[in-house]
Amino acid sequence: MMRRHILSLAAGAALMFGLAPAAEAAWPERPVTIIVPAAAGGGTDATGRLLAKQLQDIFKQPFNVVNQGQAGGVVGHTNIATARPDGYTIGVIYPYAQYKLLGQADITRDMFQPVAQFNFDPAGFHAPANTPHKTLKEALAAIKANPSKFKIGCGGPCGGSWDIPVSGLFIDQGIDTKQITFIPSNGAAVSLQELAAGGLDFVTASAPEAKALIEAGKVHPLVVMSDDRIPAFPNIAPVKEQIGKTFEGGAWRGVAGPKGLPQDIVQSLEKALKQIYDSAEFRDAMTARGFGMRWRTSGEFTAFLKEHEEFTARIMTALNMVKK
């Protein structure tokens, strides 16, 4: 008897709360969730937390970071895309086009409402310290001459932020990429360890990820995939300096919500993010962690996602990686 009584009590309470009208006051009137499709302590998590703290200062409501790093980000991205578009669930997104191409999950730009991009890190290409190929040109020539001989670590699952842009460069240089053995791993650290242990010829990863091993004299960086030298690594020549062509690619991070996010929320979020992006606090923290800064407005970010999906599809098709 007692049990039924309690149940009806709970149901009554639920009804009461459910019926209470959610007044259309200024967003946000309660805590906002930021889904970060990565584990706590990683780079994406750090950027998410930096943003969350300052968003909280601006909007005077808690912005709570929720880490969902399982399945290499598939689950987190899916949950951002399928959240209720009420402005109380947003997320940090990063390169995702490979999920669909690998048959892991149907995630496309139509499912997101991009708000702003705030970060870009160019991919890097690294060799072991004792490599005979000291420059990008030498490495490219050697790979072109004998592509099946080389084993290249992807610095994560293949089809990710680092190997796709580098493969794009290979294809541009007329290298038969289908013959190269690309070796996947659980993250850049694993690939770099393998490189230092003498198990790989090259690894694609960002320069900050390889920094400790570069300084230890275990890894020889060949290039960063950007037009200009990056401030933290003035000694690594970018693609443009080495082969005279513009080639930019790597990891990016931006804030997005589910499709259907009301435009006024998008605008006020974008404005707040721009304010954060321009603040010295954010810039210093990003630089300290080795993250590159790049701003794209909601509109530019939307257009960029299209570019991202098309580029990834083109390269992965050329690499024969797309799941039919």
């Binding site: 309470a13 309660r30 805590p31």
Partner: peptide, 14 residues
């Protein structure tokens, strides 16, 4: 800061 689901309390989580 474990994000346990709020459920019906969501509008009042603040």
């Amino acid at each position: 800061l474990v994000p346990l689901p709020w459920g019906v309390l969501e509008p009042y989580s603040g």
